[in-house]
Design a protein around this nucleic acid. Structure first.
Length: 261
DNA sequence: AACCAACCCAACCGCAACGGT
DNA sequence: CACCGTTGCGGTTGGGTTGGT
């Protein structure tokens, strides 16, 4: 007899998570914590398997996740760790609080690997690639680098200027902004953009819904009842941490724009 | 404007590892 | 020790986005 599937697959949803599903999962975990992933979808009212819930939480919804591009120093550290540990992504990720193994793995496969190859280094062995073989592909490699670099710059710039609305900021952010003579409107717009881009499912729209679930006027569904004070506090802390990482990201973006414009 | 190839990353899958009985 | 359920891990894929022609 073969191995049992991790869950009953009949009628289960697959593919990208919706904001509503994210809400349900987050709300459930805030209320109940994590005991058994297998039971989570049933108790949280989700048409997903436990495995999918776990992955979504770990890779995307966890409050302590860092967002945004990895720094050059982090990239160097990944290369060094990979040389020592190989493809042990979770081990490597453990050196980067707030980063997931999936994120590190994707970053390695899409960027670092190519950059190492460009430098003539085999990403598997971390040894110099056979020169004769390497010389057969310079054009392709140049093309790859240029597209990757373009993509990075484009993303960072676009995040900065698109889809923006007002958002309130901490006092010290305004102070820093004014002392550096940065346009206030642009800053406000960027904060909204970043909170959306770097945490799409926990965007302001999601925030509103979470706040909704913590107010005594919420009556639409049984899951939207008033939350206890501790939960309200933990949700607030969570939103604060998301906002704070968005502001950090904004500062990185501003640095980038000053450097290149 | 339309098409295609390249790129990125969230999500999936299968297997390994772990822990309880 | 064997078995079984659950969780963790790493490889892979699918689909959306972008750039080039």
């Amino acid at each position: 007899m073969g191995r049992q599937p991790c869950c009953d697959r009949v009628g289960l949803k697959k593919g990208p998570w919706t904001i509503e599903e994210d809400h349900k999962l987050v709300h459930f975990i805030f209320n109940n914590g994590i005991q058994c992933w297998r039971n989570v979808p049933k108790l949280a009212g989700l048409q997903r398997c436990g495995k999918s819930c776990r992955l979504r939480w770990i890779n995307y919804l966890r409050p302590d996740l860092k967002r945004g591009a990895l720094s050059e120093a982090e990239e160097d550290q990944i290369i060094e760790l990979h040389a020592r540990l190989g493809n042990r992504w979770s081990k490597i990720a453990s050196y980067f609080p707030g980063r997931t193994d999936n994120e590190i793995k994707n970053y390695w496969n899409t960027r670092i690997k190519k950059r190492l190859q460009l430098k003539g280094i085999d990403p598997l062995t971390h040894q110099a690639i056979d020169k004769e073989k390497y010389q057969h592909e310079p054009d392709d490699k140049t093309e790859l680098l240029s597209r990757t670099e373009t993509y990075d710059k484009r993303n960072e710039t676009e995040n900065f200027i698109e889809n923006a609305n007002d958002i309130s900021l901490p006092d010290n952010a305004y102070h820093n902004m004014l002392s550096e003579n940065i346009n206030v409107d642009l800053w406000n717009k960027s904060c909204k953009t970043i909170s959306t881009c770097y945490s799409p499912s926990i965007s302001l729209e999601a925030e509103e819904s979470i706040n909704f679930s913590t107010t005594s006027t919420a009556t639409e569904s049984s899951s939207n009842v008033a939350a206890p004070a501790e939960e309200q506090e933990s949700i607030q802390q969570w939103m604060d941490s998301i906002f704070s990482s968005a502001v950090n990201q904004l500062e990185e973006d501003l640095f980038f724009l000053r450097k290149y414009n």
